[in-house]
Amino acid sequence: GIDPFTGEAIAKFNFNGDTQVEMSFRKGERITLLRQVDENWYEGRIPGTSRQGIFPITYVDVIKRPL
Rank of each mutant, 00 (worst) to 15 (best):
residue 26 R to W: 09
residue 56 P to C: 04
residue 53 G to A: 01
residue 44 G to E: 00
residue 11 A to C: 04
residue 16 N to F: 13
residue 38 D to G: 11
residue 57 I to Q: 07
residue 20 Q to S: 15
residue 50 S to C: 13
residue 47 P to G: 08
residue 53 G to W: 01
residue 22 E to V: 05
residue 29 E to V: 03
residue 52 Q to L: 07
residue 38 D to V: 05
residue 31 I to Y: 00
residue 14 N to L: 04
residue 35 R to I: 05
residue 41 W to H: 11
residue 37 V to A: 04
residue 43 E to D: 06
residue 30 R to H: 12
residue 35 R to A: 08
residue 26 R to K: 13
residue 37 V to H: 07
residue 63 I to Y: 07
residue 25 F to V: 03
residue 34 L to G: 04
residue 28 G to K: 03
residue 12 K to W: 04
residue 49 T to M: 03
residue 60 V to Y: 01
residue 51 R to K: 06
residue 62 V to P: 05
residue 1 G to D: 13
residue 31 I to H: 00
residue 16 N to P: 06
residue 57 I to T: 09
residue 36 Q to K: 10
residue 15 F to T: 01
residue 65 R to C: 15
residue 33 L to D: 04
residue 38 D to C: 13
residue 17 G to V: 04
residue 7 G to E: 08
residue 62 V to G: 03
residue 11 A to Y: 01
residue 1 G to I: 13
residue 31 I to C: 02
residue 2 I to V: 13
residue 47 P to T: 11
residue 6 T to S: 11
residue 32 T to D: 08
residue 37 V to F: 07
residue 32 T to W: 08
residue 44 G to I: 01
residue 34 L to E: 04
residue 57 I to W: 05
residue 33 L to H: 04
residue 2 I to C: 15
residue 49 T to K: 03
residue 38 D to H: 08
residue 46 I to C: 02
residue 7 G to K: 09
residue 13 F to H: 10
residue 37 V to Q: 04
residue 8 E to P: 05
residue 50 S to F: 10
residue 29 E to N: 02
residue 64 K to H: 07
residue 58 T to H: 12
residue 36 Q to A: 09
residue 37 V to I: 14
residue 35 R to Y: 08
residue 13 F to W: 11
residue 56 P to I: 03
residue 26 R to G: 07
residue 8 E to D: 09
residue 39 E to L: 09
residue 8 E to C: 15
residue 21 V to A: 14
residue 20 Q to P: 14
residue 9 A to P: 00
residue 31 I to L: 06
residue 67 L to N: 15
residue 22 E to I: 05
residue 36 Q to Y: 07
residue 41 W to C: 08
residue 44 G to S: 00
residue 43 E to C: 14
residue 50 S to Q: 11
residue 19 T to E: 10
residue 47 P to K: 10
residue 34 L to K: 03
residue 1 G to W: 10
residue 13 F to V: 09
residue 30 R to G: 04
residue 55 F to V: 08
residue 52 Q to V: 09
residue 31 I to R: 00
residue 17 G to C: 05
residue 15 F to A: 00
residue 53 G to K: 01
residue 49 T to E: 06
residue 24 S to G: 07
residue 45 R to M: 12
residue 15 F to Y: 13
residue 48 G to W: 06
residue 67 L to S: 15
residue 7 G to W: 15
residue 62 V to K: 04
residue 48 G to L: 07
residue 24 S to I: 03
residue 13 F to L: 11
residue 39 E to N: 10
residue 13 F to S: 08
residue 28 G to H: 05
residue 56 P to L: 07
residue 37 V to D: 02
residue 24 S to D: 06
residue 2 I to Y: 13
residue 8 E to L: 15
residue 28 G to Y: 05
residue 56 P to Q: 03
residue 52 Q to Y: 10
residue 14 N to I: 04
residue 28 G to S: 04
residue 11 A to D: 00
residue 10 I to A: 03
residue 15 F to I: 01
residue 15 F to D: 03
residue 5 F to Q: 15
residue 45 R to D: 02
residue 18 D to K: 14
residue 9 A to S: 04
residue 42 Y to A: 07
residue 55 F to S: 00
residue 24 S to F: 04
residue 31 I to E: 00
residue 54 I to Q: 06
residue 28 G to I: 01
residue 12 K to G: 03
residue 33 L to P: 00
residue 13 F to I: 09
residue 46 I to A: 02
residue 32 T to P: 00
residue 65 R to H: 15
residue 28 G to W: 05
residue 39 E to F: 09
residue 32 T to L: 11
residue 62 V to Y: 05
residue 30 R to D: 02
residue 19 T to D: 13
residue 2 I to F: 13
residue 4 P to G: 13
residue 10 I to R: 06
residue 18 D to N: 14
residue 58 T to V: 12
residue 43 E to G: 03
residue 22 E to Y: 12
residue 66 P to C: 09
residue 58 T to R: 11
residue 46 I to G: 01
residue 34 L to Y: 06
residue 4 P to N: 13
residue 20 Q to K: 12
residue 29 E to Y: 02
residue 65 R to Y: 15
residue 57 I to S: 09
residue 3 D to R: 08
residue 56 P to G: 02
residue 3 D to W: 12
residue 62 V to T: 07
residue 66 P to E: 08
residue 41 W to A: 04
residue 14 N to D: 15
residue 63 I to L: 10
residue 62 V to F: 07
residue 47 P to H: 10
residue 23 M to L: 15
residue 51 R to C: 04
residue 3 D to P: 11
residue 50 S to E: 12
residue 48 G to S: 06
residue 21 V to P: 09
residue 21 V to F: 14
residue 66 P to Y: 04
residue 19 T to F: 07
residue 39 E to S: 11
residue 59 Y to P: 00
residue 42 Y to E: 01
residue 12 K to H: 04
residue 37 V to T: 05
residue 47 P to R: 09
residue 31 I to S: 00
residue 67 L to M: 14
residue 47 P to C: 08
residue 9 A to C: 11
residue 64 K to L: 07
residue 12 K to C: 09
residue 51 R to L: 04
residue 64 K to E: 10
residue 7 G to R: 09
residue 33 L to I: 11
residue 20 Q to H: 12
residue 17 G to I: 03
residue 23 M to N: 01
residue 8 E to H: 10
residue 28 G to F: 05
residue 36 Q to D: 03
residue 46 I to P: 01
residue 65 R to V: 14
residue 57 I to M: 10
residue 37 V to N: 02
residue 35 R to S: 08
residue 26 R to D: 08
residue 38 D to Y: 09
residue 45 R to V: 09
residue 48 G to R: 06
residue 17 G to S: 09
residue 11 A to T: 03
residue 25 F to G: 00
residue 67 L to D: 15
residue 53 G to R: 00
residue 52 Q to C: 11
residue 44 G to Y: 01
residue 39 E to K: 11
residue 16 N to R: 11
residue 3 D to C: 15
residue 60 V to W: 01
residue 62 V to M: 07
residue 64 K to C: 14
residue 25 F to T: 01
residue 41 W to F: 09
residue 45 R to I: 10
residue 64 K to S: 06
residue 45 R to T: 10
residue 30 R to E: 05
residue 21 V to N: 14
residue 6 T to E: 12
residue 40 N to L: 14
residue 40 N to Y: 15
residue 23 M to I: 06
residue 5 F to E: 11
residue 45 R to W: 10
residue 52 Q to K: 11
residue 27 K to A: 13
residue 31 I to K: 00
residue 5 F to C: 15
residue 59 Y to E: 03
residue 35 R to T: 07
residue 1 G to N: 12
residue 64 K to W: 05
